[in-house]
């Protein structure tokens, strides 16, 4: 009985985590665009890529291994790792970024004064700075998601695990059933490589997968304790 209560208490006090199965990922960019649509991310013009200032809360990194004919291209979807020991948090002079009790690394836009210390201290380059006032052509503004703030020039932004969806799903107070709450990227992912859930719920898929034998965390040796677990790609040497 006591254990049951404990388990349900853990479920009710969620810790949001994600698992990325690199064995499934095909690098198709569906998550990237889904995120852009959901989170009112400004359109990345050509110049943004030239200056390496494109804003993508989730991006697909591609790493080469070898050269033709023995060549491999590996894909790594990289988003804010929501580190439990986040390097970005202590360096913010105005406390614009902090860790909340759901395991989220929160960015408060109002507080942000744009020192960019946090971005510099993030080993994953997951934090992105608004170098320009985001502009949309007038008609395209109709698509903007009213649940998400449109950020202004001079503030840092990053993946929020679609906190607007979390807020919506948890508003009623009941525990969220596993699989019903998904950030835009996981919802779109055609191969279901992205799995999101409450790791305090021992029955959640994310809890099961994060201890899969293939698991690793990106740059774990830095001690960031990320909330995103990757599943190792298995390579078959024929």
């Amino acid at each position: 009985m006591a254990t049951q209560t404990k388990a349900s208490a853990q479920r009710d006090n969620p810790k949001w985590e994600m698992v990325v199965d690199l064995d499934r990922c095909t690098g198709c960019q569906a998550c990237v665009i889904a995120c852009q649509a959901e989170n009112n991310i400004p359109i990345n013009e050509e110049s943004a890529f030239h200056e390496h200032r494109a804003i993508q809360w989730i991006r697909i990194e591609r790493y080469w291994e070898g050269e033709f004919p023995d060549v491999k291209a590996r894909f790594l979807p990289l988003l804010c790792q929501q580190c439990d020991n986040a390097p970005c948090e202590p360096v913010c002079p105005v406390f614009a970024t902090y860790h909340n009790n759901e395991g989220l690394n929160v960015q408060v836009y109002n507080r942000c004064v744009g020192t960019r210390y946090c971005g510099n201290n993030c080993p994953y380059h997951a934090r992105l700075f608004n170098y320009w006032e985001p502009v949309w052509p007038e008609d395209l503004r109709n698509q903007l998601n009213p649940d998400v703030t449109v950020r202004t020039r001079g503030v840092m932004e990053k993946c929020t695990f679609c906190i607007q969806r979390i807020r919506r799903a948890t508003r009623g107070g009941e525990p969220v059933e596993d699989g019903t709450l998904q950030p835009a990227c996981a919802q779109a992912c055609p191969t279901s490589a992205l799995v999101f859930g409450n790791s305090n719920d021992p029955d959640a898929k994310v809890s099961r997968l994060k201890t899969d034998e293939r698991h690793f965390r990106v740059m774990e040796h830095l001690g960031t304790d990320p909330s995103v677990t990757y599943l190792k790609q298995v390579d078959v040497d024929g």
């Binding site: 690199l22 990194e61 790493y63 590996r74 790594l76 293939r214 690793f216 990106v218 740059m219 990757y230 190792k232 790609q233 298995v234 390579d235 078959v236 040497d237 024929g238």
Partner: peptide, 10 residues
């Protein structure tokens, strides 16, 4: 490696 790959023989 950023991506830690496990090799298996087939």
């Amino acid at each position: 490696e950023v991506i830690e790959v496990q090799h298996v023989r087939r």
